[in-house]
Amino acid sequence: MSTHEGHLKGTSIGLSEATAADFFALLKPRVMALAVFTAFVGLMVAPGGMNPVMAVIAIGAIAAGAGAAGALNMWYDADIDALMSRTSKRPVPSGRVTPGEALGFGLVLSALSVMTLGVLVGWLAASLLAFTIFFYVVIYTMWLKRSTPQNIVIGGAAGALPPVIGWAAATGGIGIESLILFLVIFLWTPPHFWALALFKVGDYAVAGIPMMPNVAGQASTKKQILVYALLLVPVGVLPWLLGFASGFYGIASAALGGGFLWHSWKVLTAPGPEMRPAKALFAYSIFYLFALFAMLLADAIVMRAAAAN
């Protein structure tokens, strides 16, 4: 049976006994939390401020859209998720939620999130949210993920768009500042996921996903991780250089970038079987992105407070 036949067959299955927790798990809450956080930072960094009620609506709609994309991803990827230890206990492959339920849930949530954002906040932000969902589900999940080792590089655009959506919700436009935030996440995504792929290479091999270590080998992947780290670090400092973050942010982001480079170098120079540096880089990359955006948020709050006095 082909993947598409399996999906079609799955949509005909009756209702399961899924709980609210199972449907919440469909939203990929950790991924959704990152999207919400970076979107909120984009909204806060944007000039002019935003009505608090509208801001809550915007962030809620973005959260729902991110969750909808996660649900549709889990619907389509149920066959390969079942083969990998990291994903086999997700709601659809484990049988707690039927494919049809996941598909319907994702489609309804997608429509509601986009319409809510468009009607109540602005259609540019809603259009960007709709494009993000489409790009993640159709371009990345259905096409790139199973066809090219560049899946994470190109597909990373979907995960990098939330701060642009937040900025558009607050301003009705797209500023260079939001594009810098997009670029930070876009360049961060490959080394983050390739570090994971290095120590989960067996899972991806079983599932037939052409992640970089499985296709180009560990040595090439480690070199590419360092290249992306070298590109990421100066971009991470740009918010200070362009004047929308403080000098403290500039110094701290450079120091954090040094840590990212050090971990990437440790991955490059580690013996082939040694996976501890890759695991350390994966963990540090999460801290790096969170710290960078947290400092931008703190700067925005301080600047707003100073402007109000």
Rank of each mutant, 00 (worst) to 15 (best):
G42E: 06
K279Q: 13
A39W: 10
L292C: 07
A21N: 11
M84H: 08
N214G: 15
N151E: 13
L181E: 03
P29R: 11
F182W: 09
T116M: 13
F293L: 09
L230W: 09
A216Q: 07
K28L: 09
R276W: 05
M212P: 03
A71T: 09
I154C: 06
K266I: 00
S16G: 14
G122R: 10
A170C: 12
F260S: 05
F24D: 09
V121G: 12
M74N: 12
P52Y: 06
A130Q: 00
A126M: 01
G100L: 06
A102V: 12
I139T: 07
R96Y: 03
L232F: 14
P162G: 12
A69C: 10
E274C: 00
A229N: 02
V153H: 08
I251W: 13
G106M: 11
L292R: 02
S285G: 14
A71C: 12
F135T: 06
G172L: 02
L129K: 05
V235H: 05
S127H: 04
A160F: 06
A270N: 08
S88F: 03
A207Q: 01
F293K: 01
L268C: 04
R96M: 05
P99C: 10
V237Q: 01
F199V: 08
G60Y: 00
A64N: 03
A125F: 11
V56M: 14
T11M: 14
T19W: 09
F182A: 07
F134L: 12
I62T: 09
F293A: 06
G250K: 05
F248M: 08
K222H: 10
I59G: 01
W143T: 11
L144C: 10
T171R: 03
G65L: 01
A25L: 12
A18V: 11
P149W: 08
R276S: 13
E17Y: 07
V184M: 15
A195C: 06
G48N: 10
L183Y: 03
L281H: 00
H263C: 03
P47K: 06
S12Y: 09
G95F: 08
P162W: 13
A157T: 05
L128D: 12
A46M: 03
Y249G: 11
G67N: 07
G257M: 05
L120F: 15
V233W: 02
K89C: 03
S16E: 09
L241P: 06
L128I: 14
Y249M: 13
I13T: 15
A216P: 00
P99F: 07
V201I: 14
S264R: 00
G106S: 11
V137K: 07
W194V: 07
D203V: 02
A278Y: 07
I139P: 01
I133C: 10
Y136H: 13
D79P: 00
L230Q: 01
T38P: 13
V153Q: 07
A33E: 15
